Simulated scan of single mutants.
Amino acid sequence: MEDEKQLQAVMGLIMNGGNAKGSAFAAIKAAKKGDFEEAQAKLKESDQFLSEAHNAQTGMLTQEAQGDHQTVTLLMVHAQDHIMNAITFRDLAGEMVDLYKKLAE
């Protein structure tokens, strides 16, 4: 049962990371078209996905800190990679939206 809980948590990280990156990319596309309201909405959506991922990640870290050690699998490493890339992409997307906004002014 613990393996099933861990698998669900890991898959949640992957899904939320992918969704966060997708929303951030949609923000860049919207800004490129000059739709800054949509761009901001997509950045906010990306932040919500990252918040969900962060909460799941924090739960896993808390369990580890309490001595409930989990087996590190390739899938878990992949999930962490998704989150790190999504965070980086979200930060870059915010900068790109700002740049497109300045160019439009």
Rank of each mutant, 00 (worst) to 15 (best):
Q48W: 03
L103W: 06
T73S: 03
I87C: 09
L74Y: 10
E4V: 15
M60Q: 07
E64Y: 00
K102P: 05
L74F: 10
H82F: 00
L43H: 09
G67E: 07
A24I: 03
A93W: 04
L50N: 05
M1Y: 11
T62W: 10
G17W: 06
V10N: 02
G22M: 13
A93L: 05
E4A: 14
N19Q: 12
A93T: 10
L74Q: 10
T58Y: 03
H78F: 00
L43W: 06
L50V: 07
F89V: 13
S23Q: 14
L61P: 00
Q66I: 08
L103G: 00
G94Y: 00
N55D: 15
E4Y: 13
Q6E: 14
R90D: 10
E64P: 00
D81A: 01
D35P: 07
T71K: 03
T58K: 08
D91C: 13
L74M: 11
A53S: 04
E95W: 10
I14N: 02
F25N: 14
K5T: 13
L103C: 05
V10A: 01
S51W: 13
Y100P: 02
G67K: 07
K101T: 08
G94S: 03
M15L: 05
E45N: 15
D3I: 12
L7A: 07
S46G: 04
Y100W: 06
D47L: 12
G22Q: 13
D35K: 09
K21M: 06
A86C: 03
G17Q: 06
D3C: 01
F36I: 09
E2L: 12
I14E: 03
Q6R: 14
A31E: 09
F89M: 14
L75W: 06
S51Y: 14
H82I: 02
R90H: 15
H54G: 08
K42F: 05
E4R: 15
E38H: 02
H82A: 01
V10W: 02
F25D: 14
T58A: 05
L75V: 12
E37K: 03
A9W: 04
G34K: 08
Q63A: 01
I14T: 01
K32W: 07
A65D: 10
M96F: 05
I87A: 08
K44Y: 07
Q70H: 11
Q8C: 10
M96Y: 05
L74C: 08
L74E: 08
V97M: 04
A86M: 08
A53C: 02
K21E: 04
Q48P: 08
T62H: 13
G67Y: 09
